[in-house]
Structures are given as structure tokens and as C-alpha cells.
Computed example of a mutant assay.
Amino acid sequence: MADDFKVTDPRTLRAYAHPLRVRLIGLLRSEGPMTATRAAAALDDNVPNCSFHLRQLAKYGFAERVPGADARERPWRATARTTSWDDDSDDPAMRAATDQLNSVLLGVFTQRAQDYLATRADEPAEWRAAAGFGDMLVHVTAAELRELTEQIEALASRFDDRAADPAARPAGSRPIQLIQLAIPRGPVS
């Protein structure tokens, strides 16, 4: 699997900008290869719908069939550990596509947070204390914000080996999604 799938084409970004497609790729990345049937069960969706969206993801390079799979079991896998794109294009089509994808991602992330809140009471106290919500208001330049983002990513990257190697995960660890929103408030001064 490649490390990153860099999308530079607005059509490909729009193809990815669907809540189920984003969730399918996330599932393949976190759980490994699986059939449309297993994906449908994991995402509480139907098999034909997952199968269609997996084929669309393959059409645009996000997913592929596992080589050597038999005709009965036809698992899919993600082609890269991450997907990235630039948000600084001056091309109106690319800006519209990135805005569409970012809007879908915000919806998926919001739903994940709501799902967590719905089951939070069932979590052990140590996990309720460790997880949660918060925000900070900082006054930074664009260059400082980019540097801050890079520092946050560097901190989280120390756990990268655990994504691909279950043996590297310490006892008691769980998959945790860190969601980053760096949103300017107010006009440029």
C-alpha cells in the first residue's frame, strides 16, 4: 500500500466526496481488506450499495481488488494509507471540489462525534477522562498555522507503525481518531 494518494484532479476529488465512500476507505484503512458484504455489515449499509461505491472508489484509484483472491471471496483494499489534496488552488473547479469534499468530511466527523456521545456513558472512566472535546483560540500568521499543523502531525506520527502492525500496539490501546479543524475566525488584520 502506498503511503499517500495525492489527488490533484477536481473530478477525482468529487468522486471521493461521498459520505459512504469516505467511510469505506476509512474502514479499509483501519480494518484491512474486506468484501463488500463485510463492509456493509460494519457500516450498517446494504451490500449492493457498498459494492457500487467500492467500484467507484476503484475507478478513481482509491481502492483495488486484493490480488489473488478467489472468485467467491472478492475483497477490496485501500491503495494508500492516506489521501491528501491541496486547498490553495486558484482554479475554481478545484476550489469547488475541495470545498465539497471538506463539507462531506465535516459531516462524517460530526457523525462520528455524535456516535461517540451516544455511547460515552458506557465507556470506562479512564477513557471518558482521556477522550473529549475542546478548543483553543490562537492568533497566528498563515505560516505559523502551517508550522503548528506540522508539529501536531509530527506528534501523532510517532504512532504510525501501530496502524499497519497490530503487534506494535500495546495492550489496552484502541484506535482513536484525531480530527483537526483549523478555522480562521474574523477577517485578516
Rank of each mutant, 00 (worst) to 15 (best):
A129G: 11
L101Y: 01
R77L: 05
P124K: 06
A2W: 08
R174N: 07
Y116E: 15
E123V: 03
D45P: 01
A63M: 02
G32K: 03
I152G: 02
A129L: 10
S189A: 13
M1T: 15
I179S: 10
K6M: 10
G172W: 07
Q114M: 11
P184E: 01
A41H: 10
D90R: 05
A93H: 09
A40N: 07
I25S: 02
E153D: 12
L106A: 11
E73K: 09
R23L: 02
E31I: 02
E126V: 13
R11G: 10
G132Q: 07
S51N: 14
T149D: 14
R174T: 07
P184M: 04
A40G: 10
A130E: 12
F133R: 13
A154E: 14
Q56V: 12
L13R: 00
K6F: 14
R29N: 15
P19T: 04
E144L: 03
D160A: 09
A164F: 07
R162P: 00
R65T: 01
D165M: 09
T12F: 00
Q151N: 13
K6W: 10
M1P: 07
P166G: 11
G172C: 06
D115R: 09
N46E: 12
T37V: 11
R72P: 01
V140N: 06
D9K: 09
A129C: 05
R38H: 13
L24S: 00
A78L: 03
D70T: 03
H53D: 08
A17G: 03
P184A: 04
A182R: 14
H18I: 02
N102A: 10
L117K: 12
A58W: 02
A125T: 15
T83M: 08
R77H: 03
E73M: 05
I183F: 09
E73N: 08
S103Y: 04
Y16T: 03
C50E: 04
T82S: 14
S89R: 02
A182D: 12
A143H: 09
P92S: 10
A78E: 01
S51M: 11
Q100A: 12
I179P: 00
D4N: 14
Q180G: 12
W127Y: 08
A131D: 11
E144S: 09
S103C: 07
L181G: 10
E153T: 04
L105W: 03
R169F: 08
F133H: 12
P48K: 04
T83L: 09
R185N: 08
F52T: 15
R81D: 04
D44S: 13
S157M: 08
A154K: 14
L43F: 07
R11A: 15
A36W: 01
A154G: 07
D88M: 11
S103D: 09
M94Q: 06
E123K: 08
H53N: 15
E31G: 01
L54S: 04
Q177W: 04
P187Q: 15
A154L: 13
A163R: 12
T35S: 13
A125L: 13
S30K: 12
V47N: 08
A156V: 13
Q56M: 10
T149G: 13
H18F: 01
G134L: 05
M136K: 13
I183T: 12
P92G: 02
L105I: 06
V108N: 00
P75M: 00
D165F: 11
S173L: 08
A167L: 11
